[in-house]
Amino acid sequence: MANVEKDALTGTETTGHSWDGIQELNTPLPKWWLYTFYACIIWAVGYWVVYPAWPSLSDYTKGVIGYSSRAEHAKEMEAVKASRSEWLGKFEEANVSDIVKDSQLLNYAMAGGRALFNENCAPCHGAGGQGAPGFPVLADDDWLWGGTLESIEQSVRFGIRSGHEEERVNEMPKYGVDGLITKEEMAAVADYVIGGLQGDGAGKTVFAEQCAACHGEDGHGLPEMGGPNLSDGIWLFGAGKDAVLAQLNSPKHGVMPAWQGRLDDVSIKQVSIYVHSLGGGQ
């Protein structure tokens, strides 16, 4: 523009636009803003040199400090491990029954175990181990596979029907579906079981023949085989005759994943100790 008009009042150049007598001023950018903008551009050039920045078709510039977010993450994980190594080393060497004898280690295990339990175990077993229908209570002294520290650790490590080669597994026969016993026998043994395993009728005979091998002759359960205690009034898949009959007909079997591989060795020990402490550890 050849001759730029200037606004009389401010002395600023105008754009030459005017609407209804109002002129648009061409106010320059504030100096501080402009120089900050230039500084950012220079900063960006420095950034390209230092950090990974420009891609080519086959590779990218790595930057002079060789930064990698994943390498950085690995370094941080190593550092955390190192800072915990004094404790972790003791956990690696000791077995669970020795850990609980040392009050300091026990405290450490309880704190870690609680965090691990809430993230990994509580969805099924409930916060605090109160359980849910089909998912065993861990806060009582009724243990399907044994409540000693070692048994709990084994259950956590290898799981129940988990598909792991060292899984804990058993299978109750489908007495009804497969016709292993008659309807009358099923009803009799269901009555016997919910009646507190009392009396001398047909139910007792069927129980002795069919059930005692896993649930024990007195029905108190055989944890080494995962045979639940039937005498304590704690029912995993529901109380009452109908629930018992349903279980006899076509039994449900719970599944717990193997945590080895997902949790490290120390975590497994800590969470086992925590579970043992919830109420009924033996």
Partner: peptide
Amino acid sequence: GGKYSNDWHVAH
């Protein structure tokens, strides 16, 4: 995957 049982996923 594999963190919980099938039964848990269904119940949930």
